[in-house]
Design a protein around this nucleic acid. Structure first.
Lengths: 191, 191
DNA sequence: CCGATACCAACGAACGTTCGTTGGGGTTAC
DNA sequence: GTAACCCCAACGAACGTTCGTTGGTATCGG
């Protein structure tokens, strides 16, 4: 009764943690095994390859962001409200899945070209959601006329994606305040 | 005749290129050698270790950003003008030294803790310049009263640091337009 | 008893690095 | 002017280690 048995999910979760902290190439299978209390070779009872782990973590990240976008959209409302919900959803995904989000954002480029292309498509779809909301807002007067939806989206997502680089849960800023600050900054940047 | 002799700067420059593209841990000394037309072992005629290369590239990045900030500051003017020059300077550093900037932004965390701490200090100093300009702008009415200089700085730098992730020189957006869009977005976000 | 989990030993390749050596280009002493 | 000297850049082999991965075997819960 020394150690609890590990499941595949445990392995993927631990991989996400280490990939986020040290990068994909900076993490060895033996180190990942140590994290779970087993030998590196034992990981192959759960997984076919190291690449598979990266694929799985990154795919989960893509899934989380897309789901959040759909949820935010489906609530309807005016573009400015939708954009605020997109922001809140993005923040929730990042803060509730920090390791996955960090791996998704920083390590996806280490994927083989096939999977990397898939991630790029998913990212484009996600970005398109933001862009269409901004465009709709420009269309019906929620946002300024001179706003370029493409550029505004890139800027907004730049701020959102950088959260992982500085936000600490024990800091002065809590999650709700962060969302307020973000929405306020972005909206006043385009309104 | 056939092969031009390489200098230490060549090695550091090539290292910056590969570190930017593939990450520090994703780049081997043999690959770096191949990039320069020599064996991996030959690199040690120029450099003491692989770490040294990362240290050198990252240090150059830090130097470039700090120099740009000082130049932008020394021109004087109102806070909104200073902030615009800080933005233009940051863009210039990133676009004129893409490899160095990317390595500085993404690979500095792979440094040993001593050098990493130094980079963190440099980054804090750089951030402090932005913060003080924003604070001065709030003080004398250039920017809104409810702006938190710390948060606004983080948001502005988030957008600036993300440029390396999407900007392509052959795109629709040229450098001057980029600076205009950035300054416009940031300034209207805090004014 | 069977399937899932893990260990153990080992593989071949690649890693960063060291070593002795080499060839070419200046500089210097005669 | 040339021979002796040194230095720089690079080679090629090898070092010890770590890498991702494999195959066979033991353990254990349902």
């Amino acid at each position: 009764m020394v150690g609890v048995r590990n499941t595949r999910s445990d392995v993927v979760a631990a991989a996400g943690r280490l990939f986020a902290e040290q990068g994909y190439h900076g993490t060895s299978m033996r180190e990942l095994g140590r994290e779970l209390g087993l030998l590196g070779s034992s990981l192959y009872s759960h997984v076919d390859s190291k690449q598979d782990l990266l694929v799985e973590v990154v795919a989960e990240g893509a899934r989380l962001f897309e789901a959040a976008a759909q949820t935010a959209l489906s609530a309807g409302g005016r573009p400015s409200e939708q954009l605020r919900r997109l922001i809140a959803g993005h923040v929730a995904v990042v803060l509730d899945n920090l390791d996955v989000a960090r791996t998704f954002l920083n390590e996806a480029r280490m994927l083989d070209s096939r999977h990397r292309a898939q991630v790029l498509e998913a990212r484009d779809r996600y970005e398109a959601v933001f862009r269409s909301v901004v465009a709709a807002g420009v269309e019906d007067g929620d946002f300024r006329e001179d706003v370029d939806p493409k550029v505004a989206t890139i800027f907004a997502l730049s701020i959102l994606n950088a959260i992982e680089r500085w936000f600490r849960a024990d800091g002065a800023l809590n999650r709700d305040d962060l969302v307020d600050e973000l929405a306020h900054f972005v909206l006043s940047g385009i309104s």
